[in-house]
Design a protein around this nucleic acid. Sequence first.
RNA 1: GCUCCGGUAGUGUAGUCCGGCCAAUCAUUUCGGCCUUUCGAGCCGAAGACUCGGGUUCGAAUCCCGGCCGGAGCACCA
Length: 498
Amino acid sequence: MDKDQQIQELEKIGGKIKEKKKVREKGLTDLPPPHHKAVLRFAPNPSGPLHIGHARAAILNDVYVKRYNGELILRIEDTDPRRVHLDAYSMIPEDLKWLGVDWNKTFIQSDRIPLYYQYAEKLIARGGAYVCHCPGSEFKKLKDKSIPCPCRETTLEENLEKWAEMEDLGEAEAVLRVKTDLQHKNPAIRDWVAMRIVEAEHPRIGSRYKIYPMMNFSVAVDDYLMGISHVLRGKDHLANSEKQKFLYDHLGWDIPVFIHYGRLKMDDVALSTSKAREGIQSGMYSGWDDPRLGTIQAIARRGITPQSIQELIQEIGVKISDSIISWKKIYGLNRTILEEKSNRYFLVSQAEKVEIQDLPEEFKGLIKRPLHPDFLKRGYRELPFNGKVYLASEDLKENKTLRLMDEVNVRVEEGSVYYHSPSLEEARAEKAQIVHWVPRDDNIPAEVVMPDNHILSGYAEPECSKLKRGKVVQLERFGFARVDNLRPDKIVFYYTHS
RNA sequence: GCUCCGGUAGUGUAGUCCGGCCAAUCAUUUCGGCCUUUCGAGCCGAAGACUCGGGUUCGAAUCCCGGCCGGAGCACCA
């Protein structure tokens, strides 16, 4: 019996067919409730500028906050003095702005240390934590066997005392541990560290404090205090979410919705901030915006638009499996956005000097080309033509006919270029390639910095002098490029993509 | 090694919870064609995937078990 027959049969005997499942809308899936008071946070460690991986967290949070009319908190997590770099405090907000992420409040955790002390005490008083003097390796041995360490059994009063005395101890001599479940099947979860002693100077707040919270502690306290409803983070925090739940339980707090997404890998890019920093220091990279890096700054400098990154991140969504994103993908998204916006210009690289032989006088003069073929209202650029031009060496093939765009057809023979014919029709008949060109007597020397940081030299048409730094243009038959620097004697582009 | 989690075209996704409408969506990519004074855009067409094996079932991308592959964590980092 096939399906239709079954349905008929079923109806005959009075059965009902289950209603079909809902059709979900395109785009990012909804967050689990509550939606009415959605408070999300983006909580980077200030180790450097943001990269494409951060962009995922930032944009996802931003999109949901906007969807539910909620609130986004920027929280700088700088509770490890040794992993803090001051330049990051200003770079992070700048990168977020570039990405189009809007946030309502900013908190810096190193301003909140006393708050964490307060909750640590509260936790001790509730019997949820204890000061532990065991050496790390010793504790690990016990922990792996689910055996409580001697410190775990001390009384509340004793613990509070030991907590007060921690101030006088040296690094590694004591930690504050959160009581969890020693039988927990994942040893990593068992009695994790909440507070530790760090003697290093904090780049931002100096040596005011010696006891610093661990990320798991400060994060949970802050998420509670800030009323975070949904915690969106990478799956590398899976075990941390599990750890933090114990803290919420000790303190009688409601647990936010934890959502984890997979890793984002990019082909060809070193995402590690510390490696990039080393490379910049050693001179291997020109800076945080070196085109080879995956930083937001580098992407921006190359003329990738924030919209393309937003679209990319939203398309990838929040699933927990890893994604490998390719430049091709970003280029594709970006090209669609750039295509409309970018005006057209000529730039010839690998330039060959050409003087057209036998060129009739009448062709010399000013040539007009539209700034954008699909938007003629934008106007035209003008190129003076006198028969002396630069052509790309790859276009100059022996025994071929070429058409210089909007100008004349020429023939390449025995190393020379001869006038051939005037019209487009003739060019078509000859199957001539239609090529771009730059006047030899009127142009701007140009450089194009390619994605691998090598530099192509060439000449740009004269009207490029009217461009503004930051503009992305399409260099016809060459590719999209962003104007990076503009001087009377030279224009520097950063190549975006083809 | 231990704990946990994944696996849909080259890539990114939809569908998986609640099995049938899925010989599987959309985008990108690649390749053709049309168009075009850009190798851009646009239009048309094509290519290309349910990790494998078993089980349950009339029916499995979807449920169960196992293998394989991949990932994350196993810190006094975040």
